[in-house]
Design a protein around this nucleic acid. Structure first.
Lengths: 261, 261
DNA sequence: CGAACCCTTGACAGAAATCAACTAAGGTGG
DNA sequence: CCACCTTAGTTGATTTCTGTCAAGGGTTCG
């Protein structure tokens, strides 16, 4: 791997504090690869051989059962994913595929545990990262169980606007069908829900969404720090925490033939 | 705290491997308390001052929003809960209340981080526990998004039967209204779903559930290790992992006046 | 005994999935 | 360069599912 990439990874919260020697031995066997869109990196049920780090592009985490599929999260640069499976040395609970052209660093997960024991800082960083992931999924679950589909969509739109500095609008970072799956509805339902939110000052034009009256939308979404996450601390600087909402993925994902279920 | 309790806690996977001195300094300031049923131990949004360990009884983790409430998990002895919030020093995402008469050990969470840095074994144990919690929530979410309510109920029943050694039946460990909330439906819907499963060889008599044809039920639930968890390893010995399904709580929870939303 | 609660049942309304058809945009290949 | 094809998205009609409201039975506890 090139030094520039190493430096980027080194700067991740997960690796920032760890011992230099350990970092080198860990990344020595790592390799860097760039994939086109719609490439499946990980298959549910497989064994966790590599810890993945998204460097560019974005990766969809999804789950399947009986021919159904649902997207659980989208991972954006620069974040890791499937950390938990690596640690437990257990089968993946989720599959992963690239959305756009995506560069991924893969770190062999074989000796993570021994490094934990030798590098307290790395262990602490891992704990912090895992706790953040855990809380992220809990929020997702709370959303699903406490809000209606319409409220989830409204809350999602408000989160997006808020995370981009409370501008007047934004362009969807993912395809609508993916957003629908993330929100737990069918694409048809999402389409109707979008239309129903026009009464709340939401204008939709293709991928572009603009708000004329955020307060009106907030009356639907009833934003809550415990469901939507805390307000972004600084002026829209990513915290480095795993961005498990559908955040900043490239909307320009190149089309690729997708197998029908 | 008494020595017998200390020994029990010491035997938890989270504490088993940690340094004796650290364990003592951690539990020195801890205290032990027994609560009646329906006592709220933790309020969503509060700050995480204590790591909780359930010694006897059981604790419901639930979340609220806009007057709605949903139960996220039930914690059974002997397990910890709200570990993630303690680590992040962040507001609780869930509330907690006792179900039956419940004994809880509360460990001050102030200096967890420093212990992590000094005690690699404890750090590793924490990582393992967090990873298990994370995967547990992911499974819950997958259930909600991929299965219908009927399938979730069927799968729940099969999990219960399986975790108790594949007997002919079992008695519900929690009230039906709580099970309904956990499964993400109203009590009325659960009642109807139960009835609809009678066609699949499910007999309900109060809290007692018996199966005449598990294979028939499996055709509805389509059990899957990635949604329902792995088959219990030994003959129904708890793994010590946090039991986040509605597992073995006492069904005899004493009634208490519950405030209506 | 009465109050409070859980559970069930019925009737109804609302939400969302499904099925089908149609449009529009992008890429492909002749 | 254009015709064609694939796919995302929308819209409509319909069905299925689920929540809501209301009422009644049974149990527990004071």
């Amino acid at each position: 791997m090139r030094n520039t990439e190493l430096a980027e990874i080194r700067d991740l919260p997960l690796f920032r504090t760890m011992d230099e020697d350990n970092f080198l031995s860990l990344t020595q066997a790592a390799y860097d690869q760039t994939f086109p869109a719609q490439v499946q990196l990980i298959e549910e049920g497989g064994t966790a051989d590599f810890l993945h780090v998204v460097m560019e592009g974005s990766v969809e985490l999804f789950a399947t059962w009986q021919g159904h599929e649902t997207t659980m999260a989208v991972v954006n640069p620069i974040s890791t994913f499937i950390l938990a499976a690596c640690i437990q040395d257990a089968p993946y609970l989720m599959s992963a595929r690239t959305l756009g052209r995506t560069r991924v660093v893969m770190v062999p997960s074989v000796d993570l545990r021994t490094i934990f024991l030798n590098d307290p800082n790395f262990a602490l960083a891992t704990i912090t990262e895992l706790a953040a992931c855990y809380r992220s999924v809990v929020r997702h679950t709370k959303n699903l169980k406490l809000r209606t589909a319409r409220e989830r969509l409204a809350a999602y739109i408000l989160r997006q606007v808020r995370s981009r500095g409370n501008g007047a609008g934004f362009t969807l970072p993912v395809e609508k069908r993916l957003l629908a799956s993330y929100l737990g509805v069918t694409p048809e339902s999402l389409s109707r829900l979008m239309k129903s939110l026009q009464d709340c000052g939401v204008h939709i034009e293709g991928q572009r969404i603009t708000l004329t009256d955020p307060a009106l939308l907030a009356e639907v979404a009833k934003p809550d720090a415990l469901l939507d996450g805390p307000d972004p601390a600084g002026p829209s600087i990513g915290l480095g925490l795993p961005d498990c909402d559908l955040g900043t993925a490239q909307p320009d994902a190149r089309r690729a033939v997708r197998e029908t279920p």
